[in-house]
């Protein structure tokens, strides 16, 4: 009785249909198609490369990274996890998923870090970008698929584009946060010595924000991971497809195997990227240092520790 919809309805779905089908698709289809090209190329290159690297070599690389950045136990987890995935016959799918995730993360970084820098620089931009990010994060991931399919079609690249949109906000937020949280007196010091804006950015702000940006990267990676299964619904391959196929055929075993593969990959990637964010000792290792020490003998960067610095201070020669 007291329901306005009895007397009056808004044809919202028709409006959207008209807008998308009648305007966006006919006019902008080539544009959206073109957007897929770089994504496709990066994805193909990565996929080919990862498929080419032998399973044992790949496991060794990841185990080494895990050992250097996190520790011995994580290296063991990596080895056994990857071995298990290989033995249950999902290695190629895992590598496809890895290629997809890496592609998404690469594009998220390329887009997210500059946007983060931009919004960190001006409050006005941040006020505009922030609600957009909020919307991007609150829209359920399934809902993304609708316009994506309409505009991009189905397949790997649309799946990855959906993933990029879904996983982009954290890295923007964290880049913004990291740069804004750099101590103001350090910025002042940089300016006082005559730094240009880009000198301050690259010499001071970015290096000091790097840990926060890495935390953003970790979150972005995890979000991309969580999108794997959903993106498979529109034709993105890899482990997500295994899970979906299993679900469709009520093949509990197949679905579980795919799920386990995702879990193993997620744990390894998460721990390694987290290791970059919060190293155990105060002389923290940055990503570059981690890469640098990968092939040298030491676990930590060579920082000379002076003992008895206090005594040396008292006795230091003053000209």
């Amino acid at each position: 009785m007291l329901d306005p919809s009895q007397y009056f309805t808004i044809p919202f779905d028709t409006w959207v249909n008209d807008f998308v089908r009648g305007f966006l698709v006919p006019n902008f289809r080539p544009f959206f198609r073109a957007l897929q090209v770089p994504v496709n190329q990066v994805l193909m290159a990565l996929d080919t490369f990862l498929a080419w690297v032998p399973m044992l070599a790949m496991t060794a690389i990841f185990a080494l990274l895990a050992w250097r950045i996190v520790g011995k136990s994580m290296a063991l987890v990596t080895i056994f996890g990857f071995l298990f995935v290989d033995l249950i016959g999902l290695w190629p799918d895992t590598m496809t998923t890895l290629a997809m995730i890496l592609t998404s993360v690469i594009f998220c970084t390329i887009l997210g870090v500059p946007v983060g820098i931009l919004v960190a620089r001006s409050d006005t931009t941040w006020k505009i970008v922030r609600p957009i990010l909020d919307v991007m994060q609150t829209v359920p991931s399934f809902v993304y698929l609708v316009p994506i399919v309409m505009l991009f079609g189905v397949g790997m690249a649309p799946g990855i584009i959906a993933t990029i949109i879904f996983a982009l906000p954290p890295i923007i937020r964290m880049t913004n946060l990291g740069i804004r949280n750099v101590r103001t007196d350090l910025i002042e010091a940089s300016e006082a010595f005559g730094a240009t804006y880009s000198q301050t950015l690259f010499e001071v702000q970015l290096p000091l924000a790097m840990r926060t940006i890495m935390a953003g990267l970790n979150q972005t990676l995890m979000l991309a991971m969580s999108m794997v299964v959903i993106a498979a619904l529109i034709g993105a391959g890899g482990l997500g497809q295994v899970v979906n196929t299993g679900l469709g055929r009520l093949d509990v075993g197949g679905a579980t195997a795919g799920g386990l593969g995702i879990v193993v990959l997620a744990i390894v990637l998460d721990r390694i990227t987290q290791g970059l964010v919060e190293p155990s000792d105060p002389n923290r290792m940055t990503f570059r240092q981690a890469l640098g020490t990968l092939f040298s003998g030491q676990k930590r960067p060579p920082i000379k520790q002076e003992s008895g610095s206090r005594a040396a201070f008292k006795g230091s020669p003053i000209p």
Partner: peptide
């Protein structure tokens, strides 16, 4: 600077 403002 007062709090040194050295780049860590």
């Amino acid at each position: 600077f007062q709090h040194f403002a050295l780049f860590p």
